[in-house]
């Protein structure tokens, strides 16, 4: 009897751990296993929402919440980001003052490559997101950097995502330095912040699809696939890291630096978790 009881306690503790963490490997460079983390994350969500096919997570909260999905599908029929894709294409193809253009800075002339970002850049020794690569391309060609969160950079990113739709995310961790960046991003994801003391995992793993007043946090699996997004609340297009800052403010914390090391590593971790899902950006959100 006693044995059964403690077994039960053990089982329920294990359940709690899996609910809040959903990552199976460790938190040191030696013990962390990104591929095990990714598979654990997938199986966590598939166990919790058995009716939702894995591929559908690219639709964020709408993969889980049938109520808002219909409305969203109507919005996607006349996508609010259509203009931004067109603008992005024009910007992408407009030559810099020196006669060169974005195409010269990217593999495959920048077409159909969204799924490889963020990537570990060996020569810089750091994670490079697509937006960082866009601004580095500008600076290398004698142009000024664009603002990070919205406007032109989001439009260019939207166009580049659009040319990559249906390509499968395939973020690589080629060496221990990249693994350390992954680990740092993983730590950020699970660390509580702000006066309200909440982690990304609190809301986007344990709290996914459970109401916080009128807001429904979506699953972290598939979070990155549809960015940049046109968000009704913003009334415009915004980048993934703009959203990171918003979530950090919501927990009454000081947001970390857009495109700083912390956010780049966080994006690297989140994107690795979504490896295997397809690019479907840009997207529309409430």
């Amino acid at each position: 009897m006693k044995i059964i009881k403690s077994l039960l306690v053990g089982a329920s503790l294990a359940l709690v751990a899996s609910i809040t963490q959903a990552a199976s490997s460790g938190n040191t460079l030696a013990s962390v296993d990104p591929e095990a983390d990714r598979l654990a994350m997938q199986s966590f969500f598939q166990k919790r929402f058995p009716q939702v096919p894995l591929d559908d997570y690219v639709n964020g909260i709408y993969s889980l919440d049938a109520g808002s999905r219909e409305q969203w599908e109507e919005i996607e029929e006349f996508p609010p980001y259509e203009f931004d894709i067109e603008e992005g294409e024009i910007l992408f193809n407009t030559a810099f003052a020196n006669g060169k253009s974005y195409a010269g800075c990217f593999a495959n002339a920048g077409i159909g490559i969204r799924q490889n970002f963020p990537r570990w850049d060996e020569s810089q020794g750091k994670i490079v997101t697509l937006e960082l690569a866009i601004n580095q391309c500008r600076e290398a060609n004698g142009e000024k950097k664009l603002g990070w969160k919205k406007g032109k950079i989001a439009q260019i990113s939207a166009y580049m995502a659009y040319t990559s739709r249906d390509n499968v995310f395939d973020v690589q961790i080629p060496n221990d330095e990249a693994k350390a960046a992954y680990l740092d991003g993983k730590q950020s994801f699970y660390t509580r912040r702000g006066q309200l003391n909440m982690s990304c995992a609190n809301c986007h793993i344990a709290g996914a699809n459970i109401l916080i007043r009128a807001d429904l946090p979506g699953p972290t699996l598939g979070h990155v696939t549809h960015f940049p997004v046109f968000r009704s609340k913003w009334g415009e297009l915004g980048t993934l890291q703009r959203r990171y800052g918003g979530c950090q403010k919501n927990v009454r914390g000081v947001p970390q630096k857009t495109q700083g090391e912390k956010f780049r590593n966080l994006e690297f971790f989140q994107t690795y978790m979504s490896n295997g899902l397809v690019v479907n950006g840009p997207g529309a959100r409430k």
């Binding site: 809040t20 006066q195 309200l196 003391n197 609190n202 809301c203």
Partner: peptide, 13 residues
């Protein structure tokens, strides 16, 4: 320890 509920007293909320 893993609750989402904020520590209202401890964090001076």
């Amino acid at each position: 320890p893993t609750t989402i509920m904020p520590p209202f007293g401890k964090h001076w909320i």
